[in-house]
C-alpha cells in the first residue's frame, strides 16, 4: 500500500477525523461507552435530543425487537439544555471529537430559546430535531410539512450562527420538498432519516409492546429506505447531506456515502455491537486501499444510476 487512505471529512466547515457520527439517542452524551474505547475514536457525536426543560419521557416498555430492527418510544427523555451546557458540554469538549447538540421543542419559542443558549457555547453544530415520532407535541409535527419545517428552521437560523443541520423524518410523502424548504431557510445541512413510525402487538395480551402504542423503527430493516431518501435528497439540494438509517457495516456506510451522504450516523447497530463504529472506520480504510481511492470524500455521491 503506497498511501494511507484519508477517511476524514469536512462538513459545514467542521473537520471530522472520520465520517462516523454517533446518532442522537443512541449514545447519550458520550459517557457510556468509554470503558470500551474513547469518544475521540468517533468522528463526532450527536447528543441526546435536548429540550428547554428536562423531560421524563414515555412510560416503559419503550423498546421492542423487530425483524432486523427495533422500535423505540423513549419520548425525548433528557436533562434539559442548562444541564447539557453546564455539565455535559464541558466534559464533551475535553474529548477530541465534533460535538453536535440535537435540539427539540414543543413550540417554536422552545427551539429559539435552546438555540440561543447554545449559540453562546462552544458546541460545534446544532442538529434540529423536527422528526421525533415519540412526543405528542412538536417533534415530527414540524417535520411533516414544508411550512412547519421551514418555520422552525427560519427561527433557529435567526437565533444562532452555529452550523444548523436539520434532521428529517421519512414519514412524509416527498422528503425532497421538505429538504428544499429547509435549505431555502438557511439550513447548512440536512440529516436523514429519523425513524419510521411503526407498531408491534403482543398477540397473547393484545397489547402493543410499546406503552406508547407506536414508536420509531430503526436498524438494518430501514437501510434501503434511508439509502433511497439520501440519494433523492442529495440530488435535490446543494447543502451537504448526513446519511443515517440502519448502517451496521463499512459496506453500508460506503453505500450511503455513494448515495450522496457526506458523513454518516450510526445508532441501533451500536446496541448490538458497541464496536460497530470502529469496525466501520477500519472497513472504510480497507475499501479505499483496495480500490486505490485516496480520500473517502471522493466517493460521496458517486453512484452511477441506470
Amino acid at each position: 500500500m503506497s498511501f494511507k487512505p484519508d477517511i476524514s471529512v469536512d462538513v459545514c466547515g467542521k473537520h471530522f477525523k472520520n465520517p462516523v457520527i454517533a446518532a442522537s439517542g443512541a449514545y447519550g452524551f458520550g459517557e457510556d461507552y468509554t470503558d470500551l474505547y474513547p469518544l475521540s475514536d468517533l468522528g463526532g457525536i450527536s447528543c441526546k435530543g435536548t429540550t428547554l426543560n428536562k423531560k421524563d419521557g414515555n412510560i416503559p416498555p419503550r423498546i421492542a425487537e423487530t425483524p432486523s430492527g427495533i422500535l423505540n418510544s423513549v419520548g425525548l427523555q433528557n436533562p434539559g439544555v442548562d444541564k447539557f451546557i453546564n455539565y455535559y458540554l464541558p466534559r464533551l469538549r475535553k474529548q477530541d471529537t465534533v460535538v453536535i447538540a440535537n435540539i427539540a421543542g414543543a413550540v417554536i419559542d422552545d427551539y429559539i430559546a435552546v438555540a440561543e443558549k447554545l449559540d453562546a457555547t462552544d458546541v460545534d453544530m446544532i442538529e434540529l430535531n423536527i422528526s421525533c415520532p415519540n412526543v405528542k407535541q412538536g417533534g415530527a409535527t414540524w417535520g411533516v410539512t414544508c411550512e412547519g419545517a421551514a418555520s422552525v428552521t427560519r427561527a433557529v437560523r435567526k437565533a444562532t450562527k452555529k452550523p444548523v443541520i436539520v434532521k428529517l423524518t421519512p414519514n412524509v410523502t416527498n422528503i425532497t420538498e421538505i429538504a428544499k424548504a429547509v435549505e431555502a431557510e438557511g439550513a447548512d445541512s440536512v440529516s436523514l432519516i429519523n425513524t419510521l413510525l411503526g407498531m408491534r402487538i403482543d398477540i397473547r395480551t393484545r397489547r402493543p409492546i410499546l406503552h406508547n402504542n407506536v414508536g420509531g423503527l430503526s436498524g438494518p430493516a430501514v437501510f434501503p429506505v434511508a439509502v433511497r431518501m439520501v440519494w433523492q435528497v442529495a440530488n435535490a439540494v446543494k447543502i451537504p447531506v448526513i446519511g443515517m438509517g440502519g448502517i451496521a457495516t463499512a459496506e453500508d456506510a460506503i453505500e450511503m456515502m455513494m448515495a450522496g451522504a457526506s458523513a454518516v450516523q450510526m445508532g441501533t447497530a451500536i446496541f448490538n455491537d458497541p464496536y460497530a463504529p470502529i469496525k466501520v472506520c477500519e472497513g472504510m480504510e480497507k475499501f479505499l486501499a483496495e480500490q486505490k481511492i485516496e480520500k473517502i470524500s471522493d466517493i460521496v455521491g458517486t453512484v452511477k444510476p441506470w
Binding site: G25, A26, Y27, G28, E31, D32, Y33, K48, D56, G57, P60, R62, I63, I70, N72, V74, Q77, I270, F271, P274
Partner: peptide
C-alpha cells in the same frame, strides 16, 4: 436497548 446507560430506554 444498549444496557450501558446511553439510550435511556429502560426507565
Amino acid at each position: 436497548g444498549c444496557g450501558v446507560g446511553a439510550c435511556v430506554v429502560c426507565a
